[in-house]
Each structure stands twice: as C-alpha cells, then as structure tokens.
Design a protein around this nucleic acid. Structure first.
Length: 488
RNA sequence: GGUCUCGUGGCCGAGCGGUUAGGCACCGGUCUGCAAAACCGUCUACUCCGGUUCGAAUCCGGACGAGACCUCCA
C-alpha cells in the first residue's frame, strides 16, 4: 500500500505544528526513541510511551516505509542532572538490592523484555546500550571540546552553553531562552565547577565508590546523562535522521541537550521531526509512588493492584490507550477501563463475524470511503482515536449486514475484512481472537450445553436454569443466541 | 517565580470557525420460555466573562480551575 505514502502529517515539537512528513531519504525512515533506564521495573507510564511509539512504528511499516527503529537501553548508572549533581539511580538500586550494577540492569531488562511480549510490542530494529557505546560517547565529547563548546575541569567535562549560544540557539525545542533560564529556575542551582549554571556534564569524574568506571582522556569517570543518546542515535541513524521520540518529560533538559550536543559535535540538529508522547494519570493525578496510585504493567494484567478490582487483558489496555491521542494526557480509572473493555469486545465480536457474512451483488454503502477513513485518521498525526471511531462505524455496518439491513459485495467484503484486521492488529497492535480455547473444558462444555438444550426443548426450565445458574457461580457465562448457545 | 499545555454531555475521549466523532452508562426497541448476552435506535455537551465574525467548543483578551516542565522521571 505504498500509494498511501505521502499523506502523513506529523506534529513536530520543534515547530509546534503539524507538518507534512517527508523522509530525508525517500522510502526510508530512521527513528530513535529514548528507552528505559533499567534501575527498576518499568511502570505503566513508561509502557504508554513505548506502546505509542510502537503504534507509530507499526503504521510507518504499514505505509511500506523501510523503518530503522532504534530504542536505547540506559544501563550506565552514573548520570547527572543539569545542575551537575550526581544522580546514580542504578548505583542506588544496586546498593539497596545488594547487587552489582550490571545485575540490576540485567534483572530489569529481563522484565522489560517480558513486558514487551505481554503488551505485544514489536521489537525495535536495534536496542543499543549505553555501556556498549562508551567509546563513541568519548569521541563525541572530544569533538565538542575541539569545536570549542565544552571545557574540562578537574577530570570532568561540561558543555559550554554560553559559548554554544553564540553560534546556535540553545532552547529551540523547549522554548527557553538562555538569559531567562536563571530567573526561571525556582531555586538557584549550585554552580560548583561549572562556568555557567545551565552548563551540563558530558563526563563526570569518578567517585571511588562508583560501581561502574570508565577510562577517558580526562581520567576515570562516567558519561553524562545526555551524551549516550547522541552517540547511539548518530551511530545507527546518521548525523541527521527523521524522527526522534520520547516522553514529554524528556523535552527539557534531555532532548534540548541532545540537540546542543549534536550541533556542538556534528554541526547539525539530530532529528527532523521531534515527537513527544504525553503522560499517564491515574485517578486524575500523575502516577507516582508517593501518591499511592502507582502500579506496574504486570499488576494490572494479573489483577494484583489494589487500584482496580479486576484484571484487564493487555489487549484491553492497549485498546484503552489507543482511544486517547498520543499527545494527550490519559487518565486510568476503573470506569474508563471497564468502558474500554466492553467497547473492545464489541469491536472484536464484529471482526469475528465479518468472515461469516453473506455477500450481495451490490454494496449499500461506500466501503472504499470507509477504508480511506482509516488511513486518513492515521495520516493525521497518528490519530488512533479517530481510527477507532471509524472502526466502530465499520463494526456497525457489519452488524447491519448480518441483520440484512445493509448489503456488501464479495470484493468489498474481502477488502473491508483485510483492512480492518490490518488496522486493528497490525497498526494498533491489538490481537483479536478466540478466548475460550481451554481444550479440556471445551468438550465438557459442549456436553453441558447439549444437556441444557435438551431440557429447554422439553420446556424443563427448572433444569435449564439450574445449569445456567450453576455455571454462572463457576464464573462461566452462557449466551443464548439465535445460532445456538455459547459460553465464556 | 518562569515556560508551556489543558478545561467538552453521567464517565472516558476526538474535534479546533459552519457537519451526529466514537466508546461506556441511561432510556426505547428487536431477539428470548424468562433472563443475560447480542444487535438496532435515542440522548447533542463544550468552565466563566468580554471581543472578532454572517456564524465560535473551535480565533483573540481576561478570570477561575487542573496538569506538565524548570530537580531524577516515559
């Protein structure tokens, strides 16, 4: 379906506008997304970002682009905030769990990979690690120093924001102005070794108690927080690539500093389009441990979080997330989740009905138009909520055809079926499928349903109701339809 | 304090100058031995106050409210 290429519009955080998507190299898309820091198990908010970019990746693939999707893994513990303070989250976790840094990273990486399977994320083309690219990071830092945008102090290297601002514009992504930054900051940052408070660390001299230490031209130390992304994105995608994504909270300072590093080292901004996925709220507030509304992606699937009184399948969670635009906030509440669960089953019921429909010589509605609406929804900055609304429109048509109130031709039916499945499964990443696949239970249920049907034929309502109620107590729901009885 | 988002019907959530978004719930109907389920239909909202316009949820100004970032964060 490469004919659909060329209509895509993407909201570019850099310009604050929707722009026509024109890849740097025709037919090829390079995309870099900031991945997790593996000092703990990724939480639901992390997952939303990754699920959103998975959807974006999937749609680009459906558009027949040759996509190289790079998502890093931050496994170097020693990072610093923009004030230059050390914030060694992996090291901290290692100490508290009495493990080595690499053990911590490995432990949580296994969990992260498992979550990707559970939530049906397509594996990225490459998942590079920060520790695997120390040499590249050092080389970038050397170049930045060479270009005069960084300075060395006592074994540490800092990015010189003031010097940089003379030639480039610091703050183009986040809309911040260098000379205003000082007053903006709530509390005055300690400057320490830095010449200017907005300077940030590219390399930090090691502490003796650090768990991970690397050699560098400036002595033993650790890379700063932002340089890993510059090293890995440019190594695999080139100096200037198509899309750079991440969570909204990374816009400043992380992405801003990445731009500065890229310009400072290579003379150009890293990405043509910057995309930012929005945060996840739980019961109206940002999810956080201190607010008590924190839960893990696995807990909601297993029903082990106290926040919700029942488990939800990963498909329902994905569907729920896809009903909100990736740039909007999304609030997780019990009611909203229940609503999504019902809506999802309505849609998947229709999908399962579609191949059983009878065809007619003519179609009573414009099927092509309906299919086009799927593409135009996604072309408009990946508007999955609109896509889902259009899929529901299609579901209604399927039901009407089933009721004999609408008609469809054989050709129209097969393309509608293929496109609906393409968008729901391949683009949104939601699996529709048989639920009652318990092989041992199935023949027993067939028997029970058969016995009940006999009772019903004999108008023995006492027996048939006893069976129905008994099954309900066991958690099995009987559904009487005109085509017979089913259960789930 | 600074920068920036956002306030949509009972709930979630699109739209962003003129059309019913959609889902869930409610209500009505079809189906059913009765139910449940399923399906169809109905329900027409945009925080407030000004302004621009033939026309505003949609643009501009203000008020109030919520959130994000400025410190680790997806």
């Amino acid at each position: 379906m490469s004919s659909h290429q060329g209509n895509l519009k993407i909201y570019n955080s850099l310009s604050g506008q929707k722009e026509k998507f024109e890849p740097i190299q025709t037919g090829f898309v390079g995309m870099y997304v900031c991945g997790p820091t593996l000092y703990s198990e990724p939480h639901m908010g992390n997952m939303r970002t990754f699920i959103n970019f998975d959807m974006i990746f999937r749609y680009l693939l459906q558009l027949d682009y040759n996509v190289k999707y790079v998502r890093n893994i931050t496994d170097a513990g020693h990072i610093t905030n923009s004030a230059g303070d050390e914030v060694d989250s992996i090291g901290k976790a290692a100490k508290s769990e009495k493990m080595q840094s690499l053990e911590i990273v490995y432990k949580y990486n296994v969990k992260f990979q498992e979550l990707q399977r559970i939530y049906n994320l397509l594996p990225p083309s490459i998942e590079p690690t920060a520790t695997g690219h120390i040499q590249e990071q050092i080389e970038h830092i050397e170049k930045i120093i060479e270009n005069g945008f960084a300075y060395v102090v006592n074994g540490s290297v800092y990015f010189d924001v003031k010097k940089y601002s003379e030639k480039f514009e610091y703050g183009i992504l986040s809309g911040r102005k260098v000379d205003e930054l000082a007053e903006e900051t709530r509390t005055l940052n300690a400057q320490g070794e830095k010449r200017f408070f907005a300077d940030f660390a590219l390399w930090k001299k090691a502490n003796p108690e650090d768990m991970q230490i690397w050699r560098s031209p400036w002595g033993n130390g650790n890379p700063g927080w932002h340089i890993e992304c510059t090293a890995m994105s440019t190594k695999y995608l080139g100096n200037h690539f198509d899309i750079h994504g991440g969570g909204m909270d990374l816009k400043f300072p992380h992405h801003e500093d990445e731009i500065a590093q890229n310009c400072g080292s290579l003379g150009c901004t890293p990405a043509k389009y910057w995309m930012h996925a929005n945060m996840l709220n739980v019961n109206g507030q940002k999810m956080s441990k201190s607010l008590g509304n924190f839960f893990l992606p696995k807990e909601i699937v297993e029903g082990t979080t106290a926040l919700f009184d029942k488990p939800y399948s990963p498909n329902v969670i994905r569907f729920f997330m896809m009903q909100a635009h990736y740039r909007s906030n999304l609030d997780f509440t019990q009611d909203a989740l229940n609503a999504a669960e019902k809506g999802f089953s309505r849609l998947s019921d229709a999908l399962q009905l579609i191949d059983k429909l009878t065809v007619s010589p003519t179609s009573s509605f414009d099927v092509k138009d309906l299919i086009t609406s799927f593409y135009s929804a996604m072309d408009d900055d990946f508007n999955a909520p609109i896509l889902i609304a259009n899929l529901f429109e299609a579901a209604k048509r399927i039901n009407l055809i089933n009721d004999g109130k609408d008609t469809i031709t054989k050709e129209d039916l097969s393309s509608l079926s293929a496109e609906m499945k393409r968008f729901l499964q391949d683009v949104l990443g939601i699996e529709i499928g048989v639920t009652n696949s318990d092989s041992k239970l199935a023949p027993v249920m067939d028997l029970v349903i058969d016995l009940r049907q006999q009772a019903r034929d004999n108008k023995d309502w006492t027996t048939s109701d006893k069976i129905r109620d008994g099954l309900a107590t066991a958690g099995i729901v009987i559904k009487d339809t005109k085509d017979g009885t089913s259960w789930s």
